[in-house]
């Protein structure tokens, strides 16, 4: 456990020591920000123009996926390729850790960075859902104090994790969440009035399903990148190859513009075209298990192959 934590911590902080992470974060924020502005304009415009599902404009459009295509390869390219290139992999593989721990730690670190990248987009959510909060402070009970304090602690713990205090942050987060849960439960038992009640003017579930989709699809692309990175010595090659393998998953149907949309070819190609999954299902509040199954199994397959590929280094 401790070696894995030490590895995760190093891999995660290493992102912030390289310029590529800041480039990715900036470009990502610019793109999602501009998409948000467009969404906002459509949400507030009068007349016949408007949108049914705000999320389908943000994540269901090709604009977003064109940028997204480049993000996972940039995040994963260095993970193994750099270490093989500089020889530090020898230091890792001769230390008392299992190969799967190595792969797991690297994957968790890059997935953590991926989550970190998405975190700022939470700022858009109140607008996208048209969220309103009604405070009812007369419902305040003694139990609300631990509830609020627990939430603050948990937030503090989350904030600590990116700056290097991973285990301490996680511990604080868990402790805070437990205190908040206990406080919330007792508050509810004592007085069933809500302190704050949220009402969403726009259906919030498409937002939730969009995020579930984005978390799972990202897992697949990152696992693919990790696998490619474990095969080659050069970061450039790793990035380009994982881009090339990721391309059919993103371009998919776009590669065949004149395809018959009712034919079998279309069904096959659309089964792995991720943007289509988002345009049709995730951003409209549909959780299609076929897509989720694809993402999860592909993730597991690529992680398995990565472990094997790292292991096979020893045999050559």
């Amino acid at each position: 456990m401790r070696p894995t934590l030490a590895l995760i911590k190093r891999e995660f902080t290493a992102y912030f020591l390289s310029p590529i992470a800041y480039v990715v974060l900036t470009v990502f924020l610019l793109v999602t920000g501009s998409l948000f502005v467009i969404t906002l304009k459509l949400l507030t415009s009068d007349g016949p123009r408007g949108i049914e599902y705000p999320m389908s404009l943000m994540l269901g459009e090709d604009r977003f996926w064109l940028v997204f295509l480049f993000i996972p390869p940039l995040l994963t390219m260095r993970l193994f390729a750099e270490e093989r290139g500089s020889g530090t992999l020898e230091m890792l593989m001769t230390s008392p850790v299992r190969d799967w721990q190595l792969v797991f730690a690297k994957y968790v670190a890059c997935y953590g960075f991926y989550l970190f990248m998405w975190m700022p987009t939470a700022v858009y959510l109140p607008v996208v859902m048209d969220l309103k909060v009604d405070w009812n402070l007369s419902a305040w009970t003694p139990y609300s104090v631990p509830f609020v304090a627990g939430l603050v602690l948990a937030a503090l713990g989350l904030a600590m994790m990116p700056i290097g205090w991973i285990s301490r942050g996680a511990l604080l987060f868990i402790a805070g969440a437990l205190i908040a849960t206990a406080g919330g439960y007792f508050h509810y038992r004592h007085d069933a009035n809500h302190l704050a009640s949220f009402t969403a003017g726009i259906d919030p579930y498409p937002v939730l399903t969009s995020y579930i989709g984005i978390l799972l699809a990202g897992a697949m692309f990152l696992a693919l990148g990790l696998f490619v990175s474990s095969l080659v010595k050069s970061q450039m090659v790793a990035a380009i190859v994982s881009l090339a393998i990721g391309l059919p998953f993103i371009a998919g149907v776009l590669l065949f513009p004149y395809i018959d949309a009712s034919g079998d070819t279309f069904r096959v190609v659309s089964s792995f075209t991720v943007p289509l999954h988002f345009a049709r299902d995730f951003t409209r509040g549909v959780l299609d298990t076929r897509h989720m199954m694809l993402y999860v199994t592909a993730t597991m397959l690529f992680l398995f192959l990565t472990v094997r590929s790292v292991e096979s280094r020893r045999w050559r």
Partner: peptide, 25 residues
């Protein structure tokens, strides 16, 4: 190892602490 590969972006103390964790200390 022969070429003594190290993480060049880390500080000496930080590197040793990382290696300590990796070795389960």
């Amino acid at each position: 190892p022969e070429s003594c590969p190290l993480y060049t972006e880390m500080r000496v103390e930080e590197y040793l602490h990382f290696r300590g964790g990796l070795k389960g200390m």
